[in-house]
Design a protein around this nucleic acid. Sequence first.
DNA 1: CGGCATCCGTGACGATACTG
DNA 2: CAGTATCGTCACGGATGCCG
Lengths: 227, 227
Amino acid sequence: MPTRPTPPPRTATAPPAASSPRVPRRRSYDQFCAAARALDAVGDRWTLLIVRELLAGPRRYTDLHVDLPGVSTDVLASRLKDMERVGLTVRRRLPAPVSAYVYELTPRGHGLLPVLTALAGWGAPELTDPRPTDAVRAHWLALPLRRSLEREDWRGVVEVRLDEGEFHVRVGADAGEPVYGEGAAPEGTAAARLELDVGTCLEICRGLLSVADAVRDGRVNVKRSTA
Amino acid sequence: MPTRPTPPPRTATAPPAASSPRVPRRRSYDQFCAAARALDAVGDRWTLLIVRELLAGPRRYTDLHVDLPGVSTDVLASRLKDMERVGLTVRRRLPAPVSAYVYELTPRGHGLLPVLTALAGWGAPELTDPRPTDAVRAHWLALPLRRSLEREDWRGVVEVRLDEGEFHVRVGADAGEPVYGEGAAPEGTAAARLELDVGTCLEICRGLLSVADAVRDGRVNVKRSTA
DNA sequence: CGGCATCCGTGACGATACTG
DNA sequence: CAGTATCGTCACGGATGCCG
């Protein structure tokens, strides 16, 4: 093993330089490792969940705050600032009538989709029933469902109707477009529509049931658009 | 959206019910979302980097502490405890001569490999030169390199020799075995050996250069074992 | 009213010292 | 060697205030 040049052993003798004008001193792992570099950028609490929301398209501050229950206002503001600094997002002024800002992923930020997909795939087995304290949004199921659909070679925008709500998800073809969203798909974009109950959806997300089998068993109602 | 009943605004006069016996109250996002569930388990600082080290095989406390520069002893101990509680790791007593403990991934913990791979893939573009403050370990390159090799359909244990150090990595065939490690591969397991310089290795990790091209240009020296 | 900034209490984190 | 104990600092979460 190569001897490591002991990095300047920051001894305690270096007090945090309490005066130096303002060194925000972003906390870094300081490791020459790709995963550590990634975690330097997105490892802070809430950051990846903000990305999850922005994968649905540009969002305003208040919308983000509503769909991220539990985040405090200052942390959300701080994260959005950090993310812009790091190049994950841009802050854009909406055009004419509304004078508001939206936050939007850059291509670099959009590139985190595989990370969230992997996380969702790993976390899906624990999606059984919502705990009493859990917040619920229909489009949060899009991430794991998309993974299952992609593995069965689905492509295009799929509309999903559950009793509890509706969402849509874009499978494959990863340009910069929104990956999913609450509610029905934009007019005319849907390649297929699925109707199923939440239990079935969760089994598919957890990989216990293939979409093909679920369709065959009549647990999923499929309508394909005339393409 | 359902209006949420504003919870009784506990004024500062209400001490946090200091009596309830001991609710450690693990911090959770409390969202019915697969990615949020995953982050509940592995979203804490250092956790995924500990998994990164354990993907190299069972490790003792001190070894982990050495290969995770910057982590403090108490945080490392706390994380290992949490990870065991959540089922990511087990603590095992080494058999006869040495009386020591090792920490080892469970299958569930090993299942985080795709997450780390995705993170490494996203973070690799920022692997240019080590910053002066960066710690360096040869096997940290295994994660992104493995991803590149896998995309070019390599399989088996590949030994990698850089001027600065040597490591090996198991590509494909994801059982529970160690995925990579510092130094040469265990005797007789190597399917191939690569000799290259760090710059070339980084270009491959960043996806700027295919292994095939690098071999053709003579930037990589390949020796395949007689299989 | 949307978009933050500020203040405050608690808990997580990081460094060091200490112990079985 | 393998952690635990202690302590200062900072990040987080909740509420509230300000400002266009």
